[in-house]
Amino acid sequence: MTSWLLEFSDLQYTYPGGQKSVLNGVSFGIPEGKKCVLLGRNGCGKSTLFQHANGILQPRQGEVRWRGKPFVYKRSFLQEMTQKVGLVFQDPEHQLIASTVAEDVSYGLVNRKLPPDTIREKVGKALEAFGMSELAETPIHHLSLGQKRRLALAGVMVLEPELLLLDEPTAYLDRYQTKNLLRELDQIHRSGTTVLMATHDMDIAFEWAEWICVMDGGRLVFAGEPQALLAERQMLESLHLGIPLIAEVWEMLPPSWKREMGEGIPQSLADWKRRLEERKEEVASV
């Protein structure tokens, strides 16, 4: 039985002064301990949903539950949720508020009124974990976009959340920066944090995720494992998401090659390489 860490039930939301509802009865759960992706086109409601996940926004209708218990929209509860559910915005400029790197990472710890020695220790560990120790005293406006993204992530992770939400974290990053970010997210996941990334990049979603949810028009239209999502090709094409490039290449292979490779469509190039190496070893042993 799946253990849901965070659940959304029939969420509906319209921004004040807005004419159109952004969330239209969206319902789904985030499985605990998984690398998850929330997939959907720009404007489908992903960012708005994320702001409901730790109480920044309160739904007009519906319910958000943490470990089965409904959110209570009172100051003490919401302060607790901002620690348990860490949110990294798409634009780090909306999140970085201090003058230097170290000051920004320490901001949440200072608000929790932790002892100065504890704050210094935690900030030092966070900077080291994200490769920013040498930038501790660097003014934030001197950082590159990639460095600002890592700083925003460090500022959230220093609070040790149980769930990490990232809104389009690979936007405007080059291939090298994207690979580094995904490695950092893998490490965060291995440390015990559930991760949910919002993106419209099908290739990243298919390669990285263990569980994928798809939104369209403020509603959930799919939730399941990556391989199961490929069976919904008509839906993916209708949402202009398409299928992963690796799946397109797989479809071009002769049937005999697919049978020899086995195990269905490889989820990544690393998986494909592993299968090829295993096949070479089998042939060599004959």
Results as ranks from 00 to 15, higher is better:
Val195Pro: 00
Ser3Asn: 11
Ala129Pro: 00
Val214Phe: 10
Leu181Ile: 03
Glu128Tyr: 10
Gly18Lys: 03
Leu23Met: 02
Asn54Lys: 10
Thr2Ile: 14
Ile30Arg: 02
Leu114Thr: 06
Leu23Lys: 05
Phe50Gly: 04
Lys125Trp: 15
Ile243Thr: 14
Asp201Ala: 02
Pro266Trp: 01
Gly242Lys: 04
Val26Leu: 14
Leu239Gln: 04
Glu282Ser: 13
Asn111Thr: 05
Glu184Ile: 12
Pro254Ala: 13
Glu7Cys: 00
Leu23Glu: 05
Ala223Gly: 12
Thr82Asn: 00
Gly18Leu: 01
Ala228Val: 09
Trp4His: 05
Arg233Cys: 00
Leu276Glu: 09
Leu163Ile: 12
Lys113Gln: 11
Phe71Ser: 03
Tyr73Trp: 14
Leu5Glu: 09
Phe50Ile: 10
Val249Phe: 10
Phe206Val: 00
Leu276Gly: 09
Gln83Arg: 15
Glu103Met: 07
Met202Ile: 15
Gly68Thr: 06
Glu207Gly: 04
Ser144Asn: 07
Asn54Gly: 08
Leu78Asp: 03
Val249Asp: 04
Asp201Lys: 00
Gly40Thr: 09
Thr199Ala: 00
Val22Pro: 02
Leu135Tyr: 12
Asp216Ala: 15
Leu159Arg: 05
Ser27Asn: 02
His240Leu: 15
Trp257Glu: 10
Gly62Gln: 01
Asp271Arg: 01
Ala53Asp: 12
Gly146Val: 08
Pro70Gly: 03
Met157Asn: 02
Ala154Cys: 05
Ser285Trp: 06
Met132Asp: 15
Gly264Pro: 01
Gly43Lys: 03
Lys113His: 08
Glu260Tyr: 03
Tyr107Lys: 02
Gly45Val: 15
Lys84Leu: 12
Gln227Gly: 02
Tyr13Lys: 08
Phe28Ile: 07
Pro255Asn: 07
Glu7Lys: 06
Leu220Val: 09
Arg274Glu: 13
Ser106Asp: 14
Ala231Arg: 08
Phe71Ile: 11
Glu281His: 15
Ile119Ala: 07
Thr199Leu: 07
Asn180Gln: 14
Cys213Thr: 15
Thr100Ser: 13
Leu87Tyr: 13
Ala126Tyr: 09
Leu143Val: 10
Leu181Phe: 08
Gly33Arg: 01
Pro116Glu: 14
Asp201Leu: 02
Pro226Ala: 13
Leu153Pro: 12
Arg175His: 15
Thr2Lys: 10
Leu127Glu: 09
Leu181Asn: 10
Gln147Ser: 03
Leu39Met: 04
Thr170Pro: 06
Glu207Pro: 05
Lys113Met: 06
Pro116Phe: 13
